[in-house]
Write a protein that binds this DNA or RNA. Structure first.
Lengths: 339, 339
DNA sequence: CTGAAAGCGCTTACAG
DNA sequence: CTGAAAGCGCTTACAG
């Protein structure tokens, strides 16, 4: 049987109340007493029972991490692993535990409620992909603290996101600067904020150069390799000299299509991706891409949430992280710079 | 404020004991009573407080999933995501929640204890990579139910694993059957059971054909692309006509090295990988590989654990899952079969 | 078949 | 600065 507060209290000659205060860092405990108790705690390697604490104090030091499961992206894309890693790292550092919820298809209201009202979670980090996710709705109506990874188009919620618009703009501008004139784009799903925003960036880049938007140079993909391939095949009919693919997976698909058509990269068609996957640098030719700080986003989301748990605010908080253009070989910039 | 058992009891005109029994599926409750209570529970969408249950019953319906974090594998390799997916799917189906523990470097004994004795976990699934993981040691000495993903070389513990030996043997035998005579191997780290076992399989395949083991044809890698590349460069000095790489990432590295040397695949050097990553089929040429059922392994691990929680056993349990050879273009088998 | 009661291991006003 | 006491929301012998 594990020891209890009571045991520690007895062994150090104080009441269980005092032990509890020591453990919770109550300033008012005399430092002499604190040290005595601490010593006993260390000696016996005492661990307070979190279920009991949760019951008594209504805080468990557990946060939930809700993430879509079904998608095959989870398998091929390191996005979620990285996010998870960031969240858990931040939580570990702050003595929080993380409970994982892979939201499956049949994740209906009842299940959501089950998660939110089982008294186990102090707060939730949600990485939702679609714009009108019912989980976000439920959270919004509850009083559970939560932060969204990825901004929300309508609701005034706490979120942290990557500056997808700026990233998309940077990618497109970079291509324009290499003297490409017919810059096409394969967008992500436009019902996902990320897909939508990157496309916005593409449009803003054209605007800033006063280039009219040509519908035929825009194709909607689904972030997958295959959709990049299909999208590029369609785009090639329009003879673009460059393409901004809103994900690296789609960029790879696009590259496959371009090659199949017997064209060279970047001479005939230049390509810029988005994500900067580990694979981006290993693929031939190495892919120019927009890097996004996913691990850091996860950590910051957890930090924001934990802060929110301790200091509830009226005002919602928003954080937008910068992306970074990583120039490699597919955009045509390298070939102009004498190595 | 969420409702409590007491509230439900009052609303349905029974005692809180009875409500508790209904919720926990006690057979002895009169079905008429049960239905009445159930209706109220549904009506109010009542969720019992898990912290309170945990405290009273010493079971929380939460299992821990312990997995190494530091490794970059987590980023580029879908192994852990898939495992996580399998575990959570099985847990969801059985009304269990999963608490994620990414074991970081400084994961010392104290932290381990903190996890195991905080009264929150009914059991643990551990996916440990190295052979002498202290976490496994700690678990072994505790009375916490746990199952290991990946067999343990020394300790008599519950585990579930893929038949790595058979898989390595299949891969090697397949190459031998294509009339390759100098079959080299790039092994995984030999201090990981998976790496070790796959190498055992390689050896057994040679033995079964009475081919003596040639040390110069064996190079130890670390499962990464780079280690596959470096390993293959060394192996090429020995002029092998085939290579079994113990992971797809290493196989891709090997392919890079082979090409750099101006050799053709599979004509000059045939390649078989292991894992059957999603990328294996998309890479050019498509990679012949050994598929392992990682998602299923995760699910079965969770199922085994939950069963163990309910029915403690003296005897440890072991489960070995079959792998499958997926023939594509790098092994030279396809070219002989007229398509 | 059901209820009253004790207890799980904490936290936290309330006194002093 | 510290202790006695109540209470968090459940489960589960024990009676009946």
């Amino acid at each position: 049987m594990p020891l209890t507060l009571e045991d520690i209290a007895e062994k150090s000659g104080v009441s269980r109340s005092t032990v509890s205060r020591v453990i919770n860092g109550d300033e008012k405990v005399k430092s002499e007493t604190r040290e005595r108790v601490m010593k006993v705690i260390q000696e016996y390697n005492f661990q307070p029972n979190l279920a009991a604490r949760g019951l008594a104090a209504r805080r468990t030091n557990i946060i939930g991490l809700v993430t879509p499961a079904g998608v095959s992206e989870l398998f091929t894309d390191p996005y979620f692993p990285q996010l998870i890693r960031g969240v858990t790292a931040a939580c570990n550092a702050q003595q929080y535990s993380v409970m994982l919820w892979l939201a499956d298809l049949e994740f209906e209201r009842r299940t959501i409620n089950q998660i939110l009202h089982n008294g186990l979670l102090d707060g939730v980090v949600v990485s939702s992909m679609v714009m009108d996710d019912p989980i976000v709705q439920s959270l919004y109506q509850s009083k559970m603290p939560f932060v969204l990874v990825g901004r929300h188009p309508k609701l005034d919620v706490n979120y942290i996101d990557v500056d997808n618009t700026q990233g998309g703009m940077d990618a497109t501008l970079h291509l324009l600067k290499q003297n490409h004139h017919r810059v096409a784009t394969i967008t992500g799903p436009l019902n996902m904020v990320g897909g939508f925003d990157r496309y916005q960036g593409y449009q803003k880049a054209l605007q800033s150069r006063q280039i009219p938007l040509e519908e035929a140079l825009v194709v909607e993909g689904s972030f997958t390799e295959e959709s990049g391939y299909q999208g590029m095949k369609k785009l090639l009919e329009q003879h673009p000299d460059a393409v901004f693919a809103a994900s690296d997976m789609m960029a790879m698909g696009a590259i496959r299509a371009i090659r199949e058509a017997g064209l060279r990269i970047p001479e005939d068609v230049a390509v810029v991706g988005f994500d900067d996957l580990p694979a981006a640098s290993q693929v031939m030719p190495p892919l120019t891409s927009i890097r996004q700080p996913v691990v850091r986003m996860g950590s910051l989301a957890a930090d924001m949430l934990i802060d929110l748990i301790h200091h509830p605010r009226e005002q919602t908080q928003h954080l937008l992280l910068a992306t970074e253009l990583i120039v490699r070989s597919t955009c045509g910039a390298r070939s102009k710079i004498p190595a």
